[in-house]
Design a protein around this nucleic acid. Sequence first.
DNA 1: AGTCGAAAAATAATCGATTTTTTAATAAAT
DNA 2: ATTTATTAAAAAATCGATTATTTTTCGACT
Lengths: 222, 222
Amino acid sequence: MAESRNVGVTGASRIFDMLRQDLLDGRFAAGDKLAISALRDHYDVSLSPLREALNRLAAYGLLEQENQRGFRVPRLSREELDDIMTMRKALEGMALERAILQGDAEWESHLLAAAHRLKRADEAGLTGNEWEALHAEFHHTLVRPCGSVWLLRFIAQLHDQFDRYRRLAPAIPEIRCELDRQHGELMTLALERSVEGARELLDDHIQLSYRVALGSCGEQTT
Amino acid sequence: MAESRNVGVTGASRIFDMLRQDLLDGRFAAGDKLAISALRDHYDVSLSPLREALNRLAAYGLLEQENQRGFRVPRLSREELDDIMTMRKALEGMALERAILQGDAEWESHLLAAAHRLKRADEAGLTGNEWEALHAEFHHTLVRPCGSVWLLRFIAQLHDQFDRYRRLAPAIPEIRCELDRQHGELMTLALERSVEGARELLDDHIQLSYRVALGSCGEQTT
DNA sequence: AGTCGAAAAATAATCGATTTTTTAATAAAT
DNA sequence: ATTTATTAAAAAATCGATTATTTTTCGACT
């Protein structure tokens, strides 16, 4: 047994995590209303913790809440994706710059490790939530020492938003290959403390991801 | 009567609004645990909608939630205030620049109106939530046409965070007077489409506000 | 045929009570 | 005197049922 006791886990927090994952995985159709009693059955939990989780997700931006008529999955739009992409460039660029200036030796090892794990996962052809976790971890490690809790919070939120689009979009192997390559190069530039180079590459990286993500909006790549 | 029916208002949404106001007003001591049953009595509502509101506020960042041990009002720290101030400069500066480039004639009139109302309120010595509402409205109007829903969302969130500090701090009449003056000048520069001038002034404005807000951390002004 | 309105069904929101977990109080032991 | 174990009290989380609101259905009427 991993633990004798589920310390610090409530029904609501458990459902929040599961629902968040399922929303990022695109298990619910965009625009759909969530059938609360169906969720109740599916996750085998009572209404109170379920509704608490839904309220958190709505405040976080992964659900829309309309008083007296429940919760729905936000629609996807080209305009919003553009917004998210632009904000990612601005905020992650800012964070990366600061991280490169402030990151210490321990950051270097964490970054090296995260990049390595991601590379091995790429080579092994790993997909799904395992790969997603390593990918998110790499990007988070990259900007972690930026020194701003609020900046990291906003970046994480934008990542979740972006992922709704990206994970739904059809894969484009050539781009995916280039994206994988960029992860390694981002690490290299960061370790070299090359602020300008890293920022430019991160911009390219987000732009390339965006071209993939566009596939979820029924638009062609630019 | 204003409305024949409370359209689109639930107990939870009502409590959310009231609690948010009370948190910004500093009605709860930072670091304190919220006594849920006391809140239940005070706001005269049942546990379910109350807990839903608390969950929203925690996801929004105005409360901290620890599983199995309820909700508490986040502590105030000089470090966090610095973070919030720095992020406000970055995000509002970005938004203002975009707003000035994209704002149309209608924006100009709204901005003029908001600045006028705020000025009249200043002259009339208005204080409390009425002044706060006009002040928030002015700053929101200033950046509204920036074109990014997410940017506006983050800015609003940071404003709420900043206000927890500012409203708690002792007033400094000379600074307050200068801040009032800056509002008018910000409007002028924005209407003149002076991107650089407006950005610089907004930076100064936030910095000056920050000097006031520091008073809530038991620190002297810098 | 289409529109309007009443009744029925479905869904959301809320309530009061119960269960679980944490915190505080007390006593026993080193 | 401090620590540890036990119990009592308090608080948080959850449950099942009830109430309020919205949505759908159905039939009368134009």
